[in-house]
Design a protein around this nucleic acid. Sequence first.
RNA 1: GGCCCGUUCGUCUAUCGGUUAGGACAUCAGGUUUUCAUCCUGGAAAGAGGGGUUCGAUUCCCCUACGGGCUACCA
Length: 510
Amino acid sequence: MDERKVRVRFAPSPTGPLHIGGVRTALYNYLFAKKHQGDFILRIEDTDQTRFVSGAEEYIIESLKWLGIEPNEGVGFGDGQFAPYKQSERKNSYRQYAEQLVASGNAYYAFDTSEDLEAMRERLKASNVDAKYDSITRSTMKNSLTLSEDEVKQRLENKEQFVIRLKVPRKEEVKLYDEIRGWVNVNTSSIDDKVLFKSDGMPTYHLANVVDDYLMNISHVIRGEEWLPSAPLHVLLYRYLGWESVMPKFAHLPLLLKPEGNGKLSKRDGDRLGFPVFPIEWKDPTTNEILSGYKQNGYLPEAVINLLAFLGWNPGTAQEIFSKEELIQAFSIERVSKHGAKFDVNKAKWFNQQYVRHVDNKILAAELKNNVTEKNISVDEIYVEKVCGLVKEKISFTKELWDYSQYFFVAPTSFDESVIKKRWNEKSAIVLNDIIESFQNSIEFSHSTIENAYNEALIKNEMQSKDFLQLFRVCLSGVASGPPIFEMAELFGKENTILRLETALKNIKQ
RNA sequence: GGCCCGUUCGUCUAUCGGUUAGGACAUCAGGUUUUCAUCCUGGAAAGAGGGGUUCGAUUCCCCUACGGGCUACCA
């Protein structure tokens, strides 16, 4: 690594909600920046005004905040010395560079209408030739290379619509070093004369991205593999603009693939895959369709970061659970894999489960309390916390809290039938009554005194615990599984526990 | 079609010429947990195919196959 200060950027376009592939790109940029004490920048690439989606920009900002991978510079995170960070607000800075390329003979004005272009493509297709605007075809089109100088001047003065295209050499090897893949060679014969400056006065991605990365002193471009084919074009741009010596290093990340079948994960995959593709919930502004998010599905941001980091990267050790700080320390571009990764729902669930267990009860309680109050149940905060402490071992997602713990707040009215059917016999009621009686006579009501009372009742009635314990659980909670029974009963309290057992007795007796 | 990238257990991956090809998730079988959804132990499970290079290839090179990406005045 050279001495240049590390400055990386995440540059999404606000055409909809950010999906997890994009989130991972942001994450790798973030980790790389922090690892090298560099800057992480958020730049909004909104050069296509026709694809603007309202709310998308805010969504991107909110998502990065939720995940805790906040840029230290950029839209929504405070301007640095390179503001503005939104390309539509930088509109005026691009044309001069396009003009510079025209002046140096590396670009040209083109006046072709979309009909002209269509006709050219039809014509070439008919003769079985690759239809592209390149070193051959440009000589047959309306541009500043074929038109006289006067006519070009005239057209420009008449404010005729034009674009500026890069004059790509006919046949030239372009070498590009990718930090993940090594050297990539591309011949310019396969690249067309890309539009750099559009007729609406905005640059295309190619120009804007190169100009901004240069102006913003970007040291490394870390982006998705879908950009690899156009990277040589960008190298050409740096070269012709005279910036090749400060050209950023490139790293093209492997894509995130759909778990089943083929293709890269896309925004359109929405909810149908059984896991969210968006960090937080997104409501489509035009259709009002709601697409679910990791946040709302009960994932913890730390878990999402951890699992995403491992989709395409690994530290080379057996450790898999990494805090954000640990990821920063361990991360390196060299250990990013070259091939696409399919998202694995099971592994994602496992990651989240690991984190849920270690979350402070207070934080879980805050979420569970919402569910409880939604049901118009008023409850003590400490009680909710204790409930969380007991059930968190049993769940994978925070949104499961209520499902797994509702009997702590509402006494059961139905009882797991398969357990009743399997375990209930003529002695059950007697044992239960003995337990109730013992409880009533007890002064202290802790999990150990509960357990003692329980055991005594079993011995007295010559009953094996393994034949009765689950039945006991069902009588108390209505369901077949849950946290340690005696601790659960302690939390219910003496009166409540007795009441529940009596209710169970009444309901179950056929 | 053209160009580019890739290819190790079902999935994520380790291996930087010599390993019984390792781990994790999932799965299966046991065992704890006096019950369970936790936990522990164990099993099954992989180098796409074909050529080279080499004393020796999963590892390096070539070809084929397959997968993916790109191929717009979209990013």
